[in-house]
């Protein structure tokens, strides 16, 4: 498990950088505010270009910090929305898969094997992972294909891909433009 907090995802990296900028800029703002207050205490007046500049810098920095904070909150909110969407999609796909398995009344061993097929493992690997003979796995996959009325691995997997595409009708058929592009790419 990775403990190092530097995130791999672009959005998370952006959030981390934003947070770092906010921190540094807030400390800069504090420095200028402190300086203005200190000068006020010593001189007791707010004129002269030095003081004006310092005050402007302090105000601009504070405004910048607040602005960055609002940006960061927006970014975090978008990230959390995306995560929720992903979770829902993941959950739904899992529900769909479980639903199919129930319909076909797969045994629990067959369910395990079926999921491994979906994850792209071949019979030998499945046998190794489950600690059974390859022959057993072959028998189980045959059962799975017959229960799901498919003629093999590819058609079995395509059942679920079809389910994923079902909600996006436009993906069902390739638009003519794409197919001409393909033919030009492979003359």
């Amino acid at each position: 498990m990775k403990l190092w907090p530097w995130p791999a995802k672009t959005k998370e990296r952006r959030a981390t950088i934003l947070a770092g900028l906010i921190l540094v800029q807030a400390l800069c703002a504090l420095f200028f505010i402190g300086d203005v207050i200190e000068d006020l205490r010593v001189d007791g007046q707010l004129d002269g270009p030095h003081m004006v500049l310092e005050t402007v810098a302090a105000v601009a920095l504070v405004g910048g910090v607040i602005f960055l904070m609002i940006e960061l909150r927006g970014l975090l909110a978008r990230m959390s929305d995306m995560q929720t969407g992903l979770d829902v999609a993941k959950g739904h796909l899992a529900d769909v898969i479980e639903g199919f398995f129930d319909d076909w009344s797969l045994t629990s061993a067959e369910r395990d094997v079926a999921i491994m097929i979906l994850k792209g493992l071949d019979n030998e690997t499945i046998a190794q992972l489950r600690g059974t003979a390859t022959g057993t796995v072959r028998a189980q996959t045959t059962n799975i294909y017959s229960k799901s009325q498919t003629d093999g691995r590819a058609q079995f997997i395509s059942l679920f891909v079809e389910e994923l595409l079902a909600g996006n009708d436009h993906l069902g058929e390739l638009p003519p433009k794409v197919s001409t592009d393909r033919t030009t790419q492979h003359p």
Partner: peptide, 11 residues
């Protein structure tokens, strides 16, 4: 990695 049920969203 054996079961998708483990990754299923749920309480």
């Amino acid at each position: 990695m054996t079961s998708i049920a483990k990754e299923k969203s749920g309480r």
